[in-house]
Design a protein around this nucleic acid. Structure first.
Lengths: 350, 350
DNA sequence: CTGTTAGCGCTTTCAA
DNA sequence: TTGAAAGCGCTAACAG
């Protein structure tokens, strides 16, 4: 057992040498001739510190190259200023839009984004969420409303604000910002029926939300005595190639298909290319309907009909919902459960 | 001054009640009838703990719903298990590919990604890097090699591994994984010259790396007595619309342009659409060259020539470079400075 | 294999 | 307006 000399550390750390690696708040305090807590205040609540003192502290900070340690700060305050955004991947532009918007909004409010890419399996998400919670984020934004029980419980017990996105659910973990995928399917069905298509095919990714849209579509079609004549479910993540390949398979098996309902604009775009290659006029001979739309559908050739959803809007709303919970702004109000809506965008002649 | 009773806290925290919010390591320790450090070991170095003890600890963890606190752990160990990935945005697919790959690699190694979206101005990046450093990440992956002096110094002083990406530089902060944009420009020039194009236009974003490519292109062209007859620099971030609009401006002013060199595939795609709208056969009447390529160029109609770079590869290499520094693997070796190369992909007839 | 002690760097009471 | 003391929850460094 050695002698207890707390001052010893101070002397060691601050010895006249260069500030080799990291200056601490205590170092800054000593340089400025004030107590550590004063430096802390100068940093976090400058209005509580006399301008004179403030100046001394700031000089010391400059000179020492001090960088705040949020690990220590977060531990002491139980506030990490971290918000985690969890989604399957960032390759899909609608997710990229979501993180981008969430990040912008959160950064502006002094938070940082802990990125969690979960893939499409809930057990992966479960592992990820556990790791994420160990960082004590101040909020979590999830994609979708389908999670393991364990994920739901852990998040609920954590007591931090949680937003589920891109979908609706009667039993949210906490807050929800999304829309009904079944309803999207129904809307597409309405459009298909109205246009009089009969030979309907689905080109879709292996993804739960896409499945819900297919479901909504098929149920609504059935009510009108229509059914889907072929379905192609692609594994992995959507690419133009997959869209082409899937379309080729569909058309090879059923040359008389008159409309392809794709689960994403990327697949739909692939379908357009395949159609062009085969010399099938779109939409006269073969109509193609997409989903997603990054102001995209109207600009490819030929233009697509698509269901337009706005990842930026969802990301922004989700971030604002979290922020509103963290420090409530009297003026602002965000519905805990919000339907951001979707929009069926038709090309002139589809 | 109150009596010092450290035991008091223990009694308070662990009072027979429900584990209301967060159980701590100490709570778990008491439940398992061991010391805190044993729990810590059970979690981090299970092989050092007798199976019997381990079981008791695990039971206690289950029962208490304990979640590790990495803020505390990180503070104690000075290792946050966090790596920050900084890039202008995540909307550009090549950047999305980069984060995705970096995240995959880092997650597999037990690290998490702190996302930093910096925009295209170095002063924004500077602010961001400062905030990021306050989280004490174990590594930082930057985009580009153009940074403020302050950014460079702070990072260098921090002593953590840093990788700059997407570019080469004679004076790296630490490590570099990228390629020369001037050289890309030169390669494009070679292609243009070889094909005999004379009426050369540039369609580009307002971005430093794009500028370097333009520079390389123009210098190389000049050596062959060629010059660019028109340049359109678009603000903001690349979209199909911008590509169309820019192309329209170029063609309106110079109807005889025979090749457009675009700074991204998105812009190039926009150019294709505009060309199609005007009935200009590509590439017979107007050739279009892109940059980026997410296996994209070959699949749009008509196909593009493009300079292919691989965001995934860069992200993966960058992550591995960081990891290799954090705990060196004898077998593995990654060049501190690596040229990932690029590839000029030609369509058959361009 | 397990425990004791002493912090990591910051912020929270309270007090001055 | 400033300071002293006591922790936040965890782990390193030694013991035993």
């Amino acid at each position: 057992m050695k002698p207890k000399k707390p001052e010893l550390r101070l002397l060691k750390t601050g010895s006249g040498d260069m500030p080799v690696s990291g200056a601490t708040l205590i170092d800054v305090a000593r340089m400025a001739g004030v107590s550590p807590i004063t430096v802390s205040r100068a940093l976090n609540q400058p209005q509580l510190v006399r301008p004179n003192t403030l100046a001394k502290v700031q000089a010391a900070i400059e000179e020492s190259g001090y960088v705040k340690n949020m690990l220590a700060g977060g531990l002491a305050q139980s506030r990490s200023k971290l918000v985690s955004v969890v989604m399957p991947n960032v390759a899909n532009p609608i997710f990229a839009d979501m993180v981008q918007a969430a990040s912008d909004t959160l950064t502006a409010a002094g938070y940082q984004v802990l990125l969690g890419l979960s893939g499409y399996e809930t057990w992966r998400e479960e592992l990820l969420v556990e790791t994420i919670l160990s960082r004590r984020p101040d909020g979590v934004i999830l994609t979708g409303t389908l999670h393991t029980d364990s994920t739901r419980h852990r998040l609920q017990k954590s007591g931090i604000p949680v937003v589920e996105t891109w979908d609706m659910t009667p039993a949210p973990i906490d807050m929800v910002i999304g829309f009904s995928h079944e309803e999207v399917g129904r809307a597409v069905a309405g459009h298909v029926i109205e246009r009089g298509y009969h030979r309907i095919a689905i080109l879709s990714m292996d993804d739960g939300r896409a499945a819900r849209r297919r479901q909504g579509l098929q149920v609504a079609l059935a009510k009108h005595g229509l059914s889907v004549i072929a379905t192609e479910i692609m594994p992995g993540s959507a690419t133009l190639q997959l869209g082409r390949a899937g379309t080729a398979r569909l058309l090879d098996a059923h040359p008389d298909i008159d409309v392809i309902v794709a689960s994403s604009d990327t697949l739909a775009h692939g379908a357009l290319i395949e159609a062009a290659t085969r010399g099938l006029p779109v939409p006269q001979r073969l109509a193609v309907i997409g989903f997603g739309d990054q102001n995209f559908a109207a600009h490819v050739q030929p233009p697509l009909s698509t269901v337009r959803v706005d990842g930026s809007k969802i990301g922004n709303l989700a971030a604002r919902a979290i922020l509103q919970r963290l420090d409530p702004q009297p003026g602002v109000s965000i519905q805990p459960v919000t339907d951001t809506g979707f929009e069926l965008v038709q090309r002139a002649s589809t």
